[in-house]
Amino acid sequence: MAVSVPTSLAEAVSLLSGAPDSVVLAGGTDLMVEANSGHRQIASVIAIDRVPELRTWGVDVVRRNLWIGSGVPYSTVMQPGIASLVPALAQASRTVGSPQIRHVGTIGGNLGTCSPAGDTLPVLAALDARVHLASVSGERSVGFDEFMVGVKRTSRRPDELITGVTIPILNGWQGYSKVGVRNAMVIATASSCLAVDTDGRSVRIGLGSVGPVIIRCGEAEQWISGRVDWSELSVSNADVDEFGLRCGAAARPIDDHRSTAAYRRRAVEVLAARQLRRAFPNG
C-alpha cells in the first residue's frame, strides 16, 4: 500500500489525476474500518486530512449560502457557527459515531462513501445542497440529487476530489431524526430530515436508509406545502398523519441485516409526521 499525504489542494488534485485508481482517505472512519476488517484491498491511498483549503467553512451573505469544505469534521459542524445556520446538519453530525469519530470524520467522507445510511446526506438532499468537485481540468458543482446515483455510487469521476458543499440558508424549522437499535454509535435503520422554507412556502423532506439513494418525497412535499396555513404557520392533525403516510409510500425500503422493509416504511411514516408537527406546533 502506497500512501501520499498532500498538504495543498493543488497537490492533492494533481496526485489524484496522476493516479485515479487511488482511494481518497479523509477521516478514515469508513475506509480504515473496511481495510482493517479485510473487506477491502487498497493499493494506493491519498490522505487529504492535511489539506488546509478543505478544512474551511464560511458564509456567502449575498447568495445566502453556507460553504463547508469537505475536510471539515463533524465536531466542527456541531459548533454554534455552523449549527445556528443549518441546525439539521448539526443534529445529523451529532448522531455519527462517538466523539473520537466525530473529531476525524468529515462531511466530504460522508459524501465520498455515499451510503444510503450516511447521516448528513438526507440533510444535504432536503436542503438542495450542491457538491463541489475539483480536478486538474477544472472545477464543477452538481446538485446532491445528481451526485448520489446508487448505493455507495456517485457521479464523481475518479480523477475528481470532493472539495466541499454549498448549502442554502433557509428561514424556517429544520431537523434530523434517526431510528436505530441503540442511541450510541449506531447506523441508521431509517432517518429523515425535514426542512421548512418559510420564505418560499415549501416543506422538504429527505429520507435515509430506505432506498438505494436518499429519497426526496416530491409529491408529499408539494401536497403538504399547499396544505400548511403559512400565515398562521399551522397544519391540521389529519394533514400531519396524511403527510406521514405519503412519505412512507415514497420510501423504497428493503429487508436486510439491519431491519425489514415494513418496519422501515412505518418508521418513515412516524418520523415524517413527528417532524412536521415539530415544525408547525400549532394544529
Binding site: V3, V5, L25, G28, T29, M32, V33, N36, V45, A47, D49, R50, Q100, I101, H103, V104
Partner: peptide
C-alpha cells in the same frame, strides 16, 4: 482519536 483507524504516516 481512535488510533486503530488512523495511519501512522498521517
Amino acid at each position: 482519536t481512535k488510533s486503530c483507524t488512523m495511519l501512522a504516516v498521517q
